[in-house]
Design a protein around this nucleic acid. Structure first.
Ligand code: MN
Ligand code: MN
Ligand code: ZN
Ligand code: ZN
Lengths: 136, 136
DNA sequence: CACTACTTTAGAATCATTATAAAGTAGAAA
DNA sequence: TTTCTACTTTATAATGATTCTAAAGTAGTG
Protein backbone atom coordinates (compact mmCIF):
# COMPACT_ATOMS: atom_id res chain seq x y z
CA UNK A 1 0.00 0.00 0.00
CA UNK A 2 2.50 2.62 1.14
CA UNK A 3 5.16 1.51 -1.26
CA UNK A 4 8.03 3.48 -2.59
CA UNK A 5 6.04 4.72 -5.58
CA UNK A 6 3.48 6.31 -3.26
CA UNK A 7 6.12 8.08 -1.26
CA UNK A 8 7.75 9.41 -4.42
CA UNK A 9 4.43 10.77 -5.62
CA UNK A 10 3.53 12.26 -2.30
CA UNK A 11 6.87 13.97 -1.97
CA UNK A 12 6.84 15.24 -5.53
CA UNK A 13 3.31 16.55 -5.24
CA UNK A 14 4.36 18.44 -2.12
CA UNK A 15 7.24 20.15 -3.87
CA UNK A 16 9.79 18.00 -2.04
CA UNK A 17 12.27 16.16 -4.23
CA UNK A 18 12.09 12.44 -3.62
CA UNK A 19 15.66 11.88 -2.56
CA UNK A 20 16.73 8.48 -1.31
CA UNK A 21 17.10 9.88 2.19
CA UNK A 22 13.54 11.20 2.24
CA UNK A 23 12.19 7.94 0.88
CA UNK A 24 14.02 5.98 3.57
CA UNK A 25 12.58 8.30 6.20
CA UNK A 26 9.08 7.90 4.74
CA UNK A 27 9.41 4.14 4.95
CA UNK A 28 10.53 4.32 8.56
CA UNK A 29 7.68 6.64 9.47
CA UNK A 30 4.71 5.58 7.40
CA UNK A 31 5.31 1.97 6.43
CA UNK A 32 3.64 0.69 9.56
CA UNK A 33 0.21 -0.27 10.71
CA UNK A 34 -0.20 1.96 13.72
CA UNK A 35 0.40 5.58 14.51
CA UNK A 36 4.05 6.15 15.24
CA UNK A 37 5.16 8.44 18.07
CA UNK A 38 8.88 9.14 18.12
CA UNK A 39 11.66 11.49 19.06
CA UNK A 40 14.33 12.62 16.61
CA UNK A 41 16.77 10.33 18.38
CA UNK A 42 14.39 7.35 18.12
CA UNK A 43 14.13 7.96 14.41
CA UNK A 44 17.87 8.36 14.02
CA UNK A 45 18.45 5.00 15.71
CA UNK A 46 15.85 3.24 13.57
CA UNK A 47 17.37 4.64 10.40
CA UNK A 48 20.80 3.60 11.51
CA UNK A 49 19.58 0.03 11.93
CA UNK A 50 17.27 -0.27 8.97
CA UNK A 51 18.87 1.81 6.32
CA UNK A 52 21.90 0.65 4.40
CA UNK A 53 23.42 4.08 3.84
CA UNK A 54 23.98 6.55 6.59
CA UNK A 55 21.63 9.51 6.80
CA UNK A 56 23.12 12.49 8.58
CA UNK A 57 21.45 13.85 11.68
CA UNK A 58 21.12 17.23 9.95
CA UNK A 59 19.05 15.60 7.22
CA UNK A 60 16.85 13.86 9.75
CA UNK A 61 16.14 17.19 11.42
CA UNK A 62 15.61 18.90 8.05
CA UNK A 63 13.24 16.22 6.87
CA UNK A 64 11.21 15.93 10.03
CA UNK A 65 10.68 19.68 10.08
CA UNK A 66 9.91 19.74 6.35
CA UNK A 67 7.28 17.04 6.95
CA UNK A 68 5.91 18.92 9.92
CA UNK A 69 5.56 22.04 7.78
CA UNK A 70 3.69 20.03 5.14
CA UNK A 71 1.47 18.67 7.88
CA UNK A 72 2.66 15.09 7.48
CA UNK A 73 3.86 15.10 11.06
CA UNK A 74 2.61 16.74 14.23
CA UNK A 75 4.78 17.77 17.14
CA UNK A 76 3.67 16.84 20.67
CA UNK A 77 5.08 18.43 23.83
CA UNK A 78 5.14 16.19 26.84
CA UNK A 79 8.23 17.23 28.67
CA UNK A 80 11.06 19.60 28.14
CA UNK A 81 13.80 17.13 27.35
CA UNK A 82 12.05 15.13 24.66
CA UNK A 83 10.09 16.48 21.76
CA UNK A 84 7.78 13.87 20.26
CA UNK A 85 6.48 13.70 16.72
CA UNK A 86 3.34 11.91 15.69
CA UNK A 87 2.34 10.40 12.35
CA UNK A 88 -1.27 11.00 13.34
CA UNK A 89 -1.64 14.66 12.39
CA UNK A 90 -5.28 15.04 13.36
CA UNK A 91 -6.20 16.82 16.57
CA UNK A 92 -6.43 14.01 19.09
CA UNK A 93 -5.91 13.03 22.71
CA UNK A 94 -3.20 10.93 24.31
CA UNK A 95 -2.30 8.67 27.11
CA UNK A 96 1.26 9.23 28.24
CA UNK A 97 2.72 6.28 30.08
CA UNK A 98 5.12 7.80 32.57
CA UNK A 99 6.65 4.42 33.33
CA UNK A 100 7.75 3.77 29.76
CA UNK A 101 7.67 7.32 28.35
CA UNK A 102 5.30 6.11 25.67
CA UNK A 103 2.47 7.94 23.95
CA UNK A 104 -0.77 6.16 23.03
CA UNK A 105 -3.47 7.69 20.87
CA UNK A 106 -6.95 8.01 22.24
CA UNK A 107 -9.79 7.87 19.78
CA UNK A 108 -12.49 10.53 19.82
CA UNK A 109 -14.87 7.96 21.23
CA UNK A 110 -12.46 7.15 24.09
CA UNK A 111 -13.01 10.61 25.55
CA UNK A 112 -16.38 12.22 26.06
CA UNK A 113 -16.86 15.60 24.44
CA UNK A 114 -14.71 18.26 26.08
CA UNK A 115 -16.79 21.34 26.59
CA UNK A 116 -14.86 24.58 26.99
CA UNK A 117 -17.29 26.97 28.60
CA UNK A 118 -15.06 29.96 29.01
CA UNK A 119 -14.33 32.28 26.12
CA UNK A 120 -11.54 34.80 25.79
CA UNK A 121 -12.79 37.87 23.91
CA UNK A 122 -11.10 38.28 20.55
CA UNK A 123 -9.40 34.88 20.66
CA UNK A 124 -10.25 31.80 18.68
CA UNK A 125 -9.81 28.23 19.83
CA UNK A 126 -7.24 26.43 17.69
CA UNK A 127 -7.31 23.03 19.35
CA UNK A 128 -8.48 21.23 22.46
CA UNK A 129 -6.31 18.30 23.44
CA UNK A 130 -6.35 16.10 26.50
CA UNK A 131 -3.28 14.50 27.99
CA UNK A 132 -3.90 11.61 30.37
CA UNK A 133 -0.85 10.65 32.35
CA UNK A 134 -0.78 7.02 33.40
CA UNK A 135 1.69 4.77 35.17
CA UNK A 136 1.98 1.31 36.65
CA UNK B 1 -0.35 37.95 54.04
CA UNK B 2 2.52 36.17 52.35
CA UNK B 3 5.12 38.10 54.23
CA UNK B 4 8.69 37.21 54.83
CA UNK B 5 7.87 35.44 58.10
CA UNK B 6 5.56 33.03 56.29
CA UNK B 7 8.15 32.21 53.70
CA UNK B 8 10.76 31.55 56.37
CA UNK B 9 8.41 29.21 58.18
CA UNK B 10 7.34 27.42 55.06
CA UNK B 11 10.92 26.88 53.94
CA UNK B 12 12.06 25.75 57.36
CA UNK B 13 9.17 23.35 57.77
CA UNK B 14 10.08 21.85 54.39
CA UNK B 15 13.65 21.22 55.41
CA UNK B 16 14.90 24.05 53.20
CA UNK B 17 17.07 26.63 54.88
CA UNK B 18 15.56 30.08 54.52
CA UNK B 19 18.43 31.76 52.75
CA UNK B 20 18.05 35.30 51.48
CA UNK B 21 18.08 34.00 47.90
CA UNK B 22 15.22 31.60 48.55
CA UNK B 23 13.22 34.27 50.32
CA UNK B 24 13.69 36.66 47.42
CA UNK B 25 12.55 33.93 45.04
CA UNK B 26 9.53 33.19 47.23
CA UNK B 27 8.57 36.86 47.11
CA UNK B 28 8.87 36.95 43.35
CA UNK B 29 6.81 33.80 42.94
CA UNK B 30 4.17 33.89 45.66
CA UNK B 31 3.75 37.51 46.64
CA UNK B 32 1.13 38.09 43.97
CA UNK B 33 -2.60 37.86 43.61
CA UNK B 34 -2.90 35.53 40.65
CA UNK B 35 -1.34 32.28 39.59
CA UNK B 36 2.05 32.93 38.08
CA UNK B 37 3.20 31.06 34.98
CA UNK B 38 6.83 31.60 34.12
CA UNK B 39 9.96 30.27 32.52
CA UNK B 40 13.30 30.18 34.30
CA UNK B 41 14.42 33.10 32.16
CA UNK B 42 11.31 35.11 33.06
CA UNK B 43 12.09 34.56 36.71
CA UNK B 44 15.74 35.42 36.26
CA UNK B 45 14.81 38.74 34.65
CA UNK B 46 12.30 39.58 37.37
CA UNK B 47 14.85 38.85 40.08
CA UNK B 48 17.44 40.94 38.30
CA UNK B 49 15.06 43.90 38.32
CA UNK B 50 13.48 43.50 41.73
CA UNK B 51 16.21 42.12 43.87
CA UNK B 52 19.02 44.27 45.15
CA UNK B 53 21.65 41.53 45.24
CA UNK B 54 22.38 39.33 42.32
CA UNK B 55 21.12 35.75 42.48
CA UNK B 56 23.07 33.39 40.28
CA UNK B 57 21.31 31.49 37.55
CA UNK B 58 22.49 28.22 39.14
CA UNK B 59 20.65 29.14 42.32
CA UNK B 60 17.52 30.00 40.40
CA UNK B 61 17.58 26.58 38.76
CA UNK B 62 18.37 24.87 42.06
CA UNK B 63 15.58 26.65 43.88
CA UNK B 64 12.93 26.18 41.23
CA UNK B 65 13.64 22.45 41.14
CA UNK B 66 13.77 22.24 44.91
CA UNK B 67 10.35 23.92 45.03
CA UNK B 68 9.05 21.60 42.32
CA UNK B 69 10.21 18.60 44.34
CA UNK B 70 8.41 19.97 47.42
CA UNK B 71 5.33 20.46 45.26
CA UNK B 72 5.36 24.24 45.57
CA UNK B 73 5.69 24.53 41.82
CA UNK B 74 4.38 22.49 38.93
CA UNK B 75 6.08 22.15 35.58
CA UNK B 76 4.01 22.54 32.41
CA UNK B 77 5.17 21.41 28.97
CA UNK B 78 3.86 23.43 26.10
CA UNK B 79 6.64 23.37 23.60
CA UNK B 80 10.14 22.10 23.44
CA UNK B 81 12.01 25.36 23.72
CA UNK B 82 10.30 26.77 26.80
CA UNK B 83 9.55 24.97 30.00
CA UNK B 84 6.91 26.71 32.07
CA UNK B 85 6.41 26.56 35.79
CA UNK B 86 3.16 27.26 37.55
CA UNK B 87 2.48 28.44 41.08
CA UNK B 88 -0.87 26.67 40.87
CA UNK B 89 0.17 23.13 41.72
CA UNK B 90 -3.28 21.56 41.53
CA UNK B 91 -4.22 19.50 38.52
CA UNK B 92 -5.88 22.00 36.20
CA UNK B 93 -6.48 22.97 32.59
CA UNK B 94 -5.01 25.78 30.54
CA UNK B 95 -5.52 28.10 27.68
CA UNK B 96 -2.29 28.69 25.82
CA UNK B 97 -2.31 31.90 23.81
CA UNK B 98 -0.13 31.17 20.83
CA UNK B 99 0.03 34.83 19.88
CA UNK B 100 1.56 35.94 23.17
CA UNK B 101 2.96 32.61 24.42
CA UNK B 102 0.93 33.07 27.60
CA UNK B 103 -0.68 30.46 29.81
CA UNK B 104 -4.05 31.11 31.44
CA UNK B 105 -5.59 28.86 34.08
CA UNK B 106 -8.98 27.39 33.47
CA UNK B 107 -11.12 26.69 36.48
CA UNK B 108 -12.76 23.29 36.93
CA UNK B 109 -16.09 24.90 36.14
CA UNK B 110 -14.73 26.36 32.89
CA UNK B 111 -14.45 22.87 31.44
CA UNK B 112 -17.13 20.20 31.57
CA UNK B 113 -16.15 16.94 33.14
CA UNK B 114 -13.64 15.06 30.99
CA UNK B 115 -14.66 11.45 30.83
CA UNK B 116 -11.92 8.99 29.90
CA UNK B 117 -13.75 5.86 28.77
CA UNK B 118 -10.78 3.75 27.79
CA UNK B 119 -8.74 1.92 30.40
CA UNK B 120 -5.28 0.46 30.03
CA UNK B 121 -5.03 -2.78 32.02
CA UNK B 122 -2.61 -2.52 34.91
CA UNK B 123 -2.18 1.24 34.56
CA UNK B 124 -3.53 3.95 36.80
CA UNK B 125 -4.53 7.44 35.70
CA UNK B 126 -2.29 10.06 37.31
CA UNK B 127 -3.82 13.19 35.82
CA UNK B 128 -6.13 14.40 33.10
CA UNK B 129 -5.31 17.83 31.77
CA UNK B 130 -6.71 19.79 28.88
CA UNK B 131 -4.71 22.25 26.82
CA UNK B 132 -6.73 24.68 24.75
CA UNK B 133 -4.66 26.52 22.20
CA UNK B 134 -5.99 29.93 21.30
CA UNK B 135 -4.83 32.80 19.12
CA UNK B 136 -6.01 36.12 17.73
C1' DC C 1 24.83 17.10 -21.64
C1' DA C 2 24.51 21.53 -19.13
C1' DC C 3 22.37 24.21 -15.87
C1' DT C 4 20.25 25.51 -11.61
C1' DA C 5 17.79 25.20 -7.57
C1' DC C 6 17.28 22.11 -4.09
C1' DT C 7 19.41 18.83 -0.90
C1' DT C 8 22.72 16.56 1.94
C1' DT C 9 26.48 16.68 4.85
C1' DA C 10 30.30 17.38 8.32
C1' DG C 11 31.39 20.17 11.40
C1' DA C 12 30.93 24.44 14.04
C1' DA C 13 28.00 27.42 16.76
C1' DT C 14 24.41 28.18 19.95
C1' DC C 15 21.96 27.98 24.04
C1' DA C 16 19.35 25.98 27.78
C1' DT C 17 20.38 23.01 31.27
C1' DT C 18 23.36 20.30 34.35
C1' DA C 19 27.63 19.30 36.75
C1' DT C 20 31.73 20.67 39.43
C1' DA C 21 34.13 22.22 43.09
C1' DA C 22 35.43 25.98 45.92
C1' DA C 23 33.79 29.62 49.08
C1' DG C 24 30.00 31.05 52.11
C1' DT C 25 26.30 30.39 55.60
C1' DA C 26 22.53 28.50 58.73
C1' DG C 27 21.64 25.95 62.48
C1' DA C 28 23.07 23.05 66.16
C1' DA C 29 26.15 21.97 69.68
C1' DA C 30 29.72 23.09 72.78
C1' DT D 1 30.04 33.13 71.55
C1' DT D 2 32.66 29.90 69.16
C1' DT D 3 32.99 25.78 66.65
C1' DC D 4 31.49 22.48 63.62
C1' DT D 5 29.18 20.55 59.81
C1' DA D 6 25.96 19.91 56.38
C1' DC D 7 23.65 22.66 53.33
C1' DT D 8 23.79 26.41 49.95
C1' DT D 9 25.48 29.58 46.61
C1' DT D 10 28.35 30.71 43.01
C1' DA D 11 31.41 31.06 38.94
C1' DT D 12 32.62 28.38 35.62
C1' DA D 13 32.94 24.35 32.75
C1' DA D 14 30.62 20.51 30.54
C1' DT D 15 26.85 18.61 28.18
C1' DG D 16 23.74 17.71 24.66
C1' DA D 17 19.99 18.79 21.70
C1' DT D 18 19.16 21.79 18.09
C1' DT D 19 20.45 25.12 14.54
C1' DC D 20 23.65 27.16 11.39
C1' DT D 21 27.17 27.25 7.70
C1' DA D 22 29.14 26.50 3.62
C1' DA D 23 30.82 23.20 0.53
C1' DA D 24 29.80 19.05 -2.22
C1' DG D 25 26.17 16.33 -4.36
C1' DT D 26 21.83 15.57 -7.00
C1' DA D 27 17.04 15.90 -9.19
C1' DG D 28 14.70 17.78 -12.64
C1' DT D 29 14.59 20.71 -16.78
C1' DG D 30 15.68 21.75 -21.38
MN1 MN E 1 7.33 16.73 33.83
MN1 MN F 1 4.52 23.36 18.74
ZN1 ZN G 1 -0.87 10.66 18.68
ZN1 ZN H 1 -1.76 26.98 35.59
Amino acid sequence: MNNKENFVNKLRSSGLRPTKQRIEICKALYDREKTFHFTIMDLAKILKRKSREKISLATIYNTVFAFKKKNYLKEISINKNKSYFDTNVSSHHHFFNESSNELIDLKKSDVGRVNIKRKIPGKKIKSVEVLVRISD
